[in-house]
């Protein structure tokens, strides 16, 4: 059902929802941007509707709601091992369609690829999603080409009309009464979805793993500085590293954590005794790129990349992932003609 709510009424609903959920949404951090006088948009806890940034893209994704950057798995004392307490309340995540598609990728790895992940599952079960309507694409977005621009698996959608009232399409049966009671009008609401993007990508239909032999990857040996920002900003990157530690003020106690890891950063493939796979930056770029637009699909049947474009937004070397994808066709031709010679 669709509803129109004033800001005050919307705040009232959010306040009620916050009794059982942490509200996690893109927020504006004034002056927090990387350049002087710029703001940073990133996810954080919100309490009222006007804190939700509806008109700009967040630099990082929502994924830390489900996968904390650092997550304690066990606390150790001398002989005991204790799991951290489960999250006391659920999370309501406000996100755009591309990010909602990314949730499926996180679920694929953490719930279906091998055994279910205990820690992911216990927060995922308590997580609900509010779709932020997305009327126009940002410069680096290419969600339409990745078929991630439309969604219908949200609990409710939210966007503003021309009078700064909130338009809601509520699909969660248990929350309909909440909106109904607060609404100033009941009406049909269809959330806005991007229909065209300024950035376009084309993944070669006949892409194959042989493209790894193309010369284009060597360029990134020099251009990429393997900082890993592309991975950390990506809503679909899921890798982590185990990290044990003991407390400096009491070495008998400590904990085991998992922390986000990046296939671009040194150490990712190091094995005991000094072995390392993919030492060169270009090889890592190839590995990451093919995962996003080829290998993942080979395994799970659909593309991993959702086209949010954040990797392009955050790269300090101005490397465009979209451009890399668009070069694959030519790289494939190069590899095929080399093979023919």
């Amino acid at each position: 059902m669709g509803y129109r709510l004033t800001k005050e009424a919307c705040d009232g609903v959010l306040q009620k929802l916050s009794l059982n959920h942490t509200l996690f949404a893109p927020k504006r951090f004034t002056g927090g941007g990387p350049f002087s006088g710029t703001d940073l948009i990133r996810y954080g806890k919100i309490a009222s509707a006007d804190e939700i940034v509806l008109d700009a893209k967040s630099a990082h994704s929502f994924k830390e709601a489900l996968l904390p950057i650092t997550e304690t798995l066990f606390y150790f004392t001398e002989e005991q091992m204790k799991e951290p307490d489960p999250p006391a309340q659920g999370v309501l995540v406000f996100l755009r369609s591309c990010d909602l598609h990314a949730v499926r990728r996180l679920d694929e790895i953490y719930l279906r690829n091998g055994a279910e992940d205990y820690y992911y599952k216990r927060i995922r079960e308590k997580t609900r999603f509010a779709l932020i309507g997305c009327p126009t694409a940002f410069d680096t977005c290419f969600c339409v080409d990745m078929v991630a621009n439309r969604s219908d698996n949200y609990d409710f959608s939210i966007e503003q009309d021309e009078n700064a009232n909130y338009l809601i399409d509520c699909r969660a049966a248990d929350w309909a009464a909440l909106f109904e009671a607060a609404a100033s009008q009941t009406l049909a609401v269809e959330p806005s979805f991007v229909a065209a993007t300024p950035t376009r990508v084309g993944i070669p239909a006949l892409l194959d793993a042989g493209v790894a032999a193309a010369a284009m990857w060597d360029q990134y040996d020099g251009r990429c500085i393997k900082c890993g920002r592309c991975n950390f900003s990506c809503p679909t990157c899921t890798c982590y590293t185990m990290q044990d530690l003991f407390y400096t003020d009491n070495g008998k106690a400590g904990e085991r954590r998992r922390v986000w890891a990046s296939c671009m950063v040194d150490g990712f493939t190091d094995v005991a005794g000094g072995g390392c796979y993919r030492p060169k930056n270009g090889q890592r770029m190839r590995f990451k790129t093919l995962h996003k637009v080829f290998d993942y699909k080979q395994r799970f049947g659909y593309q991993m990349c959702v086209g949010c474009g954040r990797c392009d937004d955050v790269c300090p070397e101005y490397i465009s992932f979209a451009r890399i994808v668009n070069r694959l066709e030519e790289a494939l031709r190069e590899v095929k003609s080399d093979a023919a010679e």
């Binding site: 690829n113 899921t238 982590y240 185990m242 493939t269 072995g275 796979y277 093919l290 290998d295």
Partner: peptide
């Protein structure tokens, strides 16, 4: 032989192409 942090297809360190070594 690969670096396998989790052993259950989550951590990503052992992935090659579309397989997880673990």
């Amino acid at each position: 032989e690969r670096k396998m942090c989790c052993g259950i297809g989550k951590c990503g360190h052992c992935r090659i192409n579309d397989v997880y070594v673990c």
